[in-house]
């Protein structure tokens, strides 16, 4: 019995020895691993040094080119200029002044703007760059707000889950307010979002690390984290369209003219006339001091 036990123990020791012999190549693997990591780090830093050409890679539409700040167009695309004095001339980024006006009294809640926005940017389901809220106010001053699927499917049915003594109902389209004192820009730790000199708050998705700080900072909930790219996204007032002299997609498709966009440098534009005129214009959450460039007409006090 004892001898047998001894043998067993011995074989165990041998096995352990063999195992430790086999561990030696593992150590070699570690070295290889470290070498590979170092090589990878060097290669990666080289990629940083020589960044891949993002403009010539066919990522952008070949029909529209932007060289030296002048946007030119392929004449086969028949797109008339909707914002004057932008196309085919030097874009002076410091001298631009745009405004967006939403006329609540004209909004019928059709959701065209939401559909156009989703199509223009291929916005993932469940996220909205712009959306339309439905407000119902009853005679007890109780306010009911809903927004099924961001207004993408329109409002086909009236609300049945609330008392029927509604006194005022209206739709409120929401989008980025393009604040002059933007909280989202202040909090971004990597400079991925910024106020461009022409007043647009844009995202640099190459630099965004997806920390979602800006999403929490935005008082208007205009931002979201794209579940595919894991970077923050927001309404840009269709900056790419504006720079080509076109209206934003939501303004383009609005059937009632509830959304108005234009340059304040152009004295014939509708927004210039409205802003210069005597009508009452309000902004959302004025007390927060964000100074939005998005104005509302016919806004009720209850809207936040």
């Amino acid at each position: 019995m004892i001898i047998k036990d001894f043998k067993v123990n011995k074989s165990c020791v041998n096995e352990q020895l063999i195992l430790s012999d086999e561990k030696f190549p593992l150590d070699m693997d570690k070295r290889d691993f470290i070498k590979k990591v170092l090589k990878g780090a060097i290669a990666g830093s080289l990629f940083l040094v020589f960044p891949m050409d993002t403009t010539g890679g066919g990522n952008f539409d070949k029909n529209s080119t932007l060289k030296d700040g002048i946007s030119t167009f392929d004449p086969t695309i028949k797109l008339p200029e909707e914002i004057p004095e932008i196309r085919d001339r030097q874009y002076d980024i410091y001298k631009q002044n745009f405004a967006f006006i939403v006329d609540i009294t004209r909004c019928i809640g059709c959701g065209s703007c939401c559909v156009a926005d989703k199509r223009e940017y291929n916005v993932p389901d469940g996220n909205y760059r712009t959306w339309v809220e439905r407000y119902i106010k009853d005679f007890d001053d109780q306010v009911y707000v809903d927004c099924p699927n961001g207004g993408l499917d329109g409002y086909q049915k009236p609300r049945t889950d609330i008392p029927l003594n509604a006194r005022d109902t209206f739709f409120v389209p929401k989008l980025c307010n393009m604040c002059k004192e933007a909280p989202c820009v202040q909090v971004c730790p990597v400079g991925a979002t910024f106020i461009s000199p022409d007043g647009f708050i844009l995202m640099d998705s190459d630099r965004c690390v997806g920390c979602a700080y800006c999403i929490q900072a935005c008082p208007y909930s205009a931002r979201f984290l794209n579940p595919i790219t894991k970077t923050a996204e927001k309404c840009t007032w269709c900056y790419h369209r504006v720079r080509k002299g076109l209206l934003p997609a939501c303004v383009e498709v609005c059937p009632t003219g509830a959304r108005k966009f234009g340059s304040l440098n152009d004295e014939n534009s509708e927004v210039y006339k409205i802003l210069k005129g005597p009508g009452v214009l309000t902004v959302l959450k004025q007390s927060m001091g964000t100074l939005p460039a998005l104005y509302y007409m016919g806004q009720r006090l209850e809207v936040v």
Binding site: S64, E120, Y239, H240, R241, K244, L246, L247, A249, E252
Partner: peptide
Amino acid sequence: EEAQRVLKHGT
């Protein structure tokens, strides 16, 4: 880069 985004909607 944002200004060169592909247009989806025309007029």
